[in-house]
Simulated scan of single mutants.
Amino acid sequence: MSGVRAVCAAVRARVPVPVRRLLRHELRAAASLGRWALRRPPHGVGAGELPAAYTGPQTAMMYGLVFVALVETVALSVLVPWPAVHRVVLVLDVYGVLLMLAMHAACVTRPHVVRRDGSLRIRYGALFDLVVPPEAVASVRVDRRYPQGRLVALSEDGVLDLIVGGQTTVTVELTRPLAFTRPLGARGEARTIRFHADDPRALVAAVRQPAPP
Results as ranks from 00 to 15, higher is better:
65 L>R: 11
67 F>Q: 07
67 F>P: 00
67 F>R: 14
68 V>E: 15
69 A>R: 05
69 A>M: 11
70 L>M: 13
70 L>R: 10
70 L>N: 03
70 L>S: 10
71 V>H: 10
71 V>M: 14
73 T>Q: 14
73 T>P: 00
74 V>F: 07
74 V>A: 15
75 A>C: 07
75 A>I: 00
76 L>S: 07
76 L>M: 12
76 L>Y: 04
76 L>W: 05
76 L>C: 09
76 L>T: 08
77 S>W: 13
77 S>Q: 14
77 S>C: 12
78 V>W: 09
79 L>I: 12
79 L>T: 10
80 V>Y: 03
80 V>H: 05
81 P>H: 09
81 P>D: 14
83 P>G: 06
83 P>K: 04
84 A>S: 07
85 V>F: 07
85 V>Y: 04
86 H>Y: 00
86 H>F: 02
87 R>C: 11
88 V>E: 11
88 V>H: 06
89 V>D: 05
89 V>M: 09
90 L>V: 13
91 V>I: 14
92 L>F: 12
92 L>S: 13
93 D>W: 01
93 D>T: 10
93 D>G: 12
95 Y>K: 09
95 Y>C: 10
95 Y>M: 10
96 G>A: 11
96 G>V: 07
97 V>L: 08
98 L>S: 03
98 L>V: 11
99 L>G: 03
100 M>K: 10
100 M>N: 10
100 M>W: 01
101 L>V: 12
101 L>P: 06
102 A>C: 12
102 A>L: 12
103 M>G: 11
103 M>V: 10
104 H>F: 15
104 H>V: 01
104 H>G: 09
105 A>E: 04
105 A>S: 13
105 A>H: 09
107 C>L: 05
107 C>N: 07
108 V>W: 04
110 R>G: 05
111 P>H: 05
112 H>K: 06
112 H>L: 03
114 V>E: 00
115 R>L: 08
115 R>H: 15
116 R>N: 12
116 R>D: 11
117 D>V: 08
117 D>H: 05
118 G>E: 07
118 G>M: 09
119 S>A: 08
119 S>F: 03
120 L>T: 03
120 L>S: 01
120 L>G: 01
121 R>L: 15
121 R>C: 13
121 R>E: 14
123 R>K: 11
123 R>T: 13
124 Y>G: 01
124 Y>R: 10
124 Y>N: 10
125 G>P: 01
127 L>P: 04
127 L>D: 03
129 D>F: 01
129 D>R: 09
131 V>T: 15
132 V>A: 05
132 V>F: 05
132 V>W: 01
133 P>L: 11
134 P>T: 10
135 E>I: 02
135 E>V: 07
136 A>V: 14
136 A>I: 06
137 V>W: 05
137 V>Y: 03
138 A>G: 01
138 A>R: 15
140 V>W: 02
140 V>R: 00
140 V>K: 01
142 V>N: 02
142 V>H: 03
143 D>M: 08
143 D>A: 15
144 R>Y: 02
144 R>S: 13
144 R>Q: 12
